[in-house]
Amino acid sequence: MFDQLFDGALLESVFRALIPILLAAIGGLVCERAGVFQISLEGMMLVGAFAAVAGSYLGQSALLGVTIAMAVTALFSLILGYGAVTRRGDPIVLGVAVNLLALGLTSFLLPQLFGVRGVFQHPRIDGLDRLAIPFLSDLPLIGQALFNLTIPGYLSLLAIPLIWLFLFRTPIGLRLRGVGERPASAETLGVSSTQYKYAAVVFSGLACGLAGAQLALGNVVQFAENMSSGRGWIAVVAVMLGRAHPAGVLGASALFGFAEGLGFRLQGNGLPVQITEALPYVVTLIALALARKRFQRILELTAA
């Protein structure tokens, strides 16, 4: 049974599942490094997906959809930025409320703008093309999974080394980490923590916009109510589990992507969809239980 399971097609569905989570998690990772507790990835991804579909539908161009998704989500992220950074509101309350706002807003606008309920599909929505890299995409097993991706897909994989370089090899990255760790110390040296935190939040907005676009124009070509369905929360967990390190976050995202891809495959092999859909969440919980002790920060934040 196993050799039937593990093949190039499985790897493809793993990447399909992995990319939106990874994109959102990259946003979360930068926020975490800047000391912003970011749990509104879920909502921002949903807004991104909606804006991508709307943009693509109106402009009949997938790239326009992606651009609009990123712009709209970046704007949307300012709600959390203003509340949590400027007003110093409770980041957990704000994050939860922003997620619900995203859900309400998208499910309101869907019928209001497009006159449909639940799911919006239309031939005018231009999906993201997969761009095959010559030769590499012909490699066995990994070729299609790694080298025949959409633009957000390539960006997500490129982002990992780039973010690493940025964080650990540039002065701005150094300051961002400093701000996240001891904002008061950074302030005494003249580094404005507000600026860096805002930048991080907006970056997470851009990343989630991309994630949403991939979800709604790459993985499928449609918008469905609440279509992020917990992926943003999994991205939050991936940031924690990966200790806000690019490689760690990639690993954690891959784990969840693998669980989802495997679930998808097992479905094909006869397991009920209800069970396989829960697989990523169960895997997440197990991974969390095994990781232990990595959540001091959030425990402190939540346990008064």
Partner: peptide, 29 residues
């Protein structure tokens, strides 16, 4: 024919505004 989900929007905005005004905290510490 205005979608009922506007209610969800208003609900969430109440909390966002309240939390952003910094009057709402899980703990007034």
């Amino acid at each position: 024919n205005v979608p009922w989900q506007i209610a969800l929007v208003v609900q969430a905005v109440v909390i966002v505004v309240l939390a952003g005004r910094f009057v709402l905290s899980r703990r007034q510490r």
